[in-house]
Write a protein that binds this DNA or RNA. Structure first.
Lengths: 343, 343
DNA sequence: GGAAAAATGTGTATCGGTCTACGGAGTTGC
DNA sequence: GCAACTCCGTAGACCGATACACATTTTTCC
């Protein structure tokens, strides 16, 4: 058994010595800086290969860039976030930047801690996915680090934002249900913990639901259960809505997760879908397509959103200061969970 | 509109000046080092609070520790990984360490790149979740950085490992199916790309399946479809198994994802579950519990595994060099997707 | 052919922490 | 009362890169 022998990592000095040039020259080659002859480049590159040198991010960060993009998300395991990451990673793969992720959790405080952790690690850019913290806090961060916010409808000159057009998406669902002949349509929304949530996505979906109802003269039929976008939230919300009399003939859940809870509640109540009650969600998560679920839902292209986020971040890192707001138009995916109500 | 005015971050020197002490003293207080009087500690802590100082990880990393744990995973959006992270974060929350995640993707090469990215970022410890790279490569990493591997059955003195006992889990499923009276039981496994996969989890599950079949005198009924653990893999594998004549009365898929594909294939083929064919999975993912799916599966406690990973990493960082191998005993969750075959 | 300009390479301060070595004050022991 | 020891605080080298200033060589242009 060999002793641990934790041998020292190869540094830029080693490369310089091995190539017989200065540290500065090596650094220039690495960064593709101006003032390097072809011969020098060749020579240094060979030395780098021979020694297997890779620059140390911490040292670079201290002086220049860390070549790191930080992604703040509530939790991994959310299928839609995975799509976003796919787009982001795809976009960054051409560049020298690497994406790292950190979980913010569902509480203001833990999210703040995670955000600080990213800042302390000197990331060059931050992508916040549906952050909880207030707008002023985001702006404060954005003043120091290029920032892109995904999934919030408040705009700011300090950062870029990417949203799905939740008004359009919600209208698609509602128009579909109403065209099928539904009138008693319930909605399940997410009751945020803190602050003025007016700009947040659940609020937009809920408001659009109410507006469409009113536009069709169904103001009296409006029924909103304010729970959460989780499966439990959908379950509880469905129970609440089903307890009304007469009960709704359709339920529009603000997220697919919640819609899964709705389906579970309907199943337990012995109600058939879509025979007794139609159900629709939002997000077009993977599982919604499964034939045992077959959920009508709204598709927002997470991959496109993620790759846009990557592009915007790189632009900002390169120096852009004007804010860009990017909106993705969603589409309706009709499946077996919706049909005309029994007359 | 105010100019960007990107003001300089508060550094340890600022704190030292503000408190009227040396940098070294501040550093000692931060690190809880020996040789600090109560008065000094008090004074420095107040200065830190007043200035809102937070140490910069890059600078710390260069000389000491980065207080960062890196987690390498194939992809986020896998529900079981989310459980692991919950356990890990929970364990680390007491410490000063932060977990960051990075996606390795499904190819050897991209995973290597992600792993290098973590190393370049000077993480103090690495958790590899079901890594693709070979054992020798892992050992090479582990020689330099405390490493815990989750989900691989090969052991090494160089790193700690955490596994679900896949033999036990697979036996639970198989014993259950056989007790119900099934004899023609098919299995869907994951055909790894590279190398000797003997120590990898899919292989263990497949081997256990075959062993149990043989033990019950069913060697002639063994039918394995080698596709992948994804939903597509399950779908394709199910089609392959169902094309046999006579067709199997039960399918044991190596993962819940694959089992979802099996259910989809059965649905499309017009076969009822569990009437015509029983189906079982492995992982007890969230969706398996949904009444529309109701999948019999194996539960492995991801939270426990994640928190164990955190504990082991912290221990190694503190200096432990002996290897620890942690095994979690899974349990069977019986749901509606399995029943006795029609006689 | 010589001055100006451009190209190329090097020396070294610097980023923000950590950590070792050391100095001075206070305590203990005999 | 003096040596030995402990305790507390500071100075300054150092980690591994970047980037600025500058020296030297080469090219360009009349």
């Amino acid at each position: 058994m060999v002793a641990p022998a934790r041998r020292r990592r190869v540094t830029i000095s080693d490369v310089a010595k091995h190539a017989g040039v200065s540290k500065a020259a090596v650094s220039k080659v690495i960064r593709n800086d101006y003032g390097v002859s072809d011969a020098m480049r060749e020579r240094v590159k060979r030395a780098i290969d021979e020694l297997g040198y890779r620059p140390q991010a911490a040292a670079r960060a201290l002086r220049g860039r860390a070549f790191t993009i930080g992604v703040l998300m509530r939790h991994i395991g959310i299928p839609f976030y995975a799509e976003i990451m796919t787009g982001l990673v795809d976009q960054l793969t051409e560049s020298d930047y690497q994406a790292i992720m950190i979980q913010g959790g569902t509480r203001d405080q833990t999210e703040k801690r995670a955000l600080d952790a990213l800042i302390d690690r000197q990331v060059d850019g931050i992508l916040m996915i549906a952050p909880l913290v207030g707008r002023t806090q985001i702006e404060q961060v954005a003043r120091e680090i290029p920032t892109v916010v995904l999934g919030r409808h408040d705009r700011s000159p300090a950062y870029d934002s990417i949203v799905d057009d939740d008004r359009v998406g919600s209208e698609l669902v509602m128009d579909h249900l109403i065209a099928l002949g539904h009138r008693r349509i319930g909605h399940i929304t997410f009751q945020q913990e803190h602050g003025r949530a007016a700009d947040q996505m659940p609020r937009i979906r809920a408001e659009t639901y109410e507006r469409v109802m009113r536009d069709h003269g169904l103001a009296g039929e409006i029924a909103v259960a304010a729970t959460s976008y989780s499966e439990e939230g959908g379950y509880d919300g469905a129970l609440e809505l089903l307890s009304r009399s007469p009960r709704p003939t359709a339920i529009f859940a603000g997220s697919d997760q919640a819609a899964l809870g709705v389906l579970a509640a309907l199943h337990e109540a012995g109600l058939s879908v879509p025979g007794d009650v139609s159900a629709a969600g939002y997000d077009n998560t993977r599982v919604a397509a499964h034939p045992n679920i077959a959920l009508t839902t709204v598709n927002q292209d997470g991959v496109v959103m993620g790759s846009a986020a990557g592009r915007l971040l790189l632009e900002r890192i390169e120096g852009r200061t004007s804010a860009v707001h990017f909106s993705v138009i969603p589409s309706l995916v009709v499946r077996g969970s919706t049909a005309s109500p029994r007359s």
